[in-house]
Structure formats: C-alpha cells, structure tokens
C-alpha cells in the first residue's frame, strides 16, 4: 500500500512540475514583446526596462524559470502589475467564493444525479429510464454560459426569486450553483446508471435474490454500496470540469471568485496574476485527482495491486 501511495505522489509531483513549466512558458506565448503588450504603446523606454527587469524577463530563460520556481516554493507569487498588491493576497480573497460555489454545485449535482441515475438503472429501458437519460443528454448539451442566462431569465427576470448576479448571501448562491451543478448532474447520473447496471448483473446479486432477500435490501445493501465506489472516484475526476466550469459560471453571475479574477486579469493584461490563477486551479485539480486515486486504492485493493 505504501508503495502505491508513494508512486502516486511521485507521479503527481512530476505532473505538477510540468504544469509549472507550461504556466511559466505562457508569458512567452504572448506575440511580440510581452512588456510592450502589458504597458501599452505609450510607455517610455525606461518604464519598459523597469518592468522587464522586475519580471526578470531580461535574464536567460533557465534563470527565469529558476526564479519562478524558487518564488513558488516560498509562496511568493509576485506582484500584480495593475494594483501592485501581492498576488497571494489578491488570490486568497478569491478562493473562498470559488470553493463555496464548487461545493454547492457538487451538492446540487449529487441530489439531482443520485435519484435520477438509480431510478434509470432500476427502470432500465422503461419510460422513467428514457426520461432520465433525455434529461441527462439535454444537461450535457446546454453549456454553462447558456444555462446561466436561461436560469436568470426564468428565476430572476420573470419570477424574481433570486438576484440576477453578484454575491450577497445564500440566495445569490442558488442560481450559480444550479448552473454549474446541472451540468455535472447530467454526467454523473449517466455514470451512476452504468455503474449500478453493471453491479446488478453480478453473481452475488443473483445469490441475494435466490436467498429471497427483499428488493430494497438487495439494492440498498448489496448493489448500491458497491456501485458507489467507482462513482465516488468519478466525482473526484469531475472536479476538473467543475473548476473550469466555475470560470465561466462566475463570469455569468459576476461571482467574485478565482475564475472572475482570471478573466479580469486577462482583460487587464495582468499576466502574473493570470499565471498564478491558472497554476492554482490546475494544481488543485492534480492534488484532488491524486487524493482520489489514493482513496480508491485504499478502498479497493484490486486497483493498487494492478498498478
């Protein structure tokens, strides 16, 4: 088991190193001179040289990378070009709202997807199954930036139940969480259905039936417990989709989270902040994935023995 954990951690570290390298290289993807792009054409040569120097862009590439890494290891993400504030300060104010939004969406997704997926599996090929899977197909096909405005149109503009945008108490969380959550619910309900159907074909379910156990007991005690294992892993893997979806959802609802900060910084050409946001979101994703892998290995010995 220890070997499994160590090997998972080691590969996560390599991946994170690669992610850091790509994020570092992003600033060199700016066409032309990034300093000129950031400052605009009216800047003086002195200003440009000063910024170039403070970003370390006058150093050889490997030294820049070295500085970037050593900064990260000291939790020093640099300063915003726009507000001159420390990036770590700017970001830490934005983590809370994004976390709130993702957790609420996960909750929304679960309360929609579990009943739907289980119902679809138990009523396979019946009307309820078709209806649940049509809902799921529709959910996958409506992107966040369309679902958001549609929900605003219905619940804010026509019914006036929830605020159109901004973050003000629990009421304002409902529509963003619903937007992000339904997309995940659509994917999740399909997985739950597939996973449960597979388990229902297993020998031990047949044995349980032959023993004369009640249907509720078979499904509740024998099938669901085992069917949920892969589903929990899949939820972990979906965190990435959730984080990326949060970027767009935050823009739709003017939600003051990391996603909004990323897009705002792109618009202001505040590239160090963009880099920090992308890095934080991606490493969170890698860490969650690795933890999911490890937990799955703990719960299901077949996984860790295979690798």
């Amino acid at each position: 088991m220890l070997n499994y954990i160590i090997s998972r951690l080691a590969s996560a570290l390599i991946v994170i190193f690669g992610v850091v390298f790509i994020v570092f290289m992003l600033i060199h993807m700016v066409p032309g001179d990034p300093v000129e792009v950031m400052l605009g054409e009216s800047a003086t040569a002195v200003d440009r040289e000063a910024l170039r120097h403070s970003l370390g862009l006058d150093l050889p590439l490997w030294q820049q990378f070295y500085q970037f890494i050593s900064g990260l290891l000291h939790f020093d993400l640099g300063y915003s070009l726009h507000s001159r504030q420390a990036i770590s300060e700017i970001i830490s104010a934005r983590i809370g709202p994004t976390l709130e939004l993702t957790l609420a969406s996960l909750f929304v997704a679960s309360i929609i997807a579990f009943p739907l997926g289980i119902l679809a599996a138990l009523k396979k090929d019946k009307l309820a199954d078709a209806a649940a899977m049509s809902f799921s197909l529709l959910g996958v096909s409506i992107p966040n930036f369309l679902m958001g405005p549609l929900l605003i149109l219905l619940f804010s503009v026509l019914l006036g139940w929830f605020p159109v945008s901004g973050k003000s108490g629990l009421n304002s969380l409902v529509l963003p969480a619903l937007t992000l959550g339904t997309a995940l619910a659509a994917v999740l309900s399909r997985m739950i259905r597939a996973s449960l159907l597979e388990i229902l074909n297993e020998d031990y379910i047949r044995t349980a039936k032959a023993k004369g156990l009640s249907r509720t007991r078979i499904i509740g005690l024998h099938a669901l417990r085992n069917a949920m294992l892969p589903v929990i892993t899949l939820i972990g893997l979906q965190i990435g989709a959730l984080l990326a979806g949060a970027v767009i959802t935050e823009i739709v609802f003017s939600w003051p989270g990391l996603g909004q900060l990323t897009i705002e910084s792109i618009q202001k050409r505040d590239y160090p902040v963009v880099q920090a946001c992308i890095l934080l979101i991606s490493t969170t994703y890698v860490v969650v994935n690795t933890l999911t892998d490890i937990v799955y290995g703990l719960l299901d010995p077949r996984i860790r023995l295979e690798s």
């Binding site: 991946v15 994170i16 690669g18 992610v19 790509i22 965190i239 990435g240 989709a241 984080l243 990326a244 979806g245 970027v247 990323t262 897009i263 792109i266 992308i278 979101i281 991606s282 994703y285 890698v286 994935n289």
Partner: peptide, 9 residues
C-alpha cells in the same frame, strides 16, 4: 492536468 478549457482560456 489542466482542467477543461482552462489552458485554452
């Protein structure tokens, strides 16, 4: 390791 369209953004 980059979630969804984040890198594209």
């Amino acid at each position: 390791a980059f979630p969804g369209i984040l890198l594209a953004i």
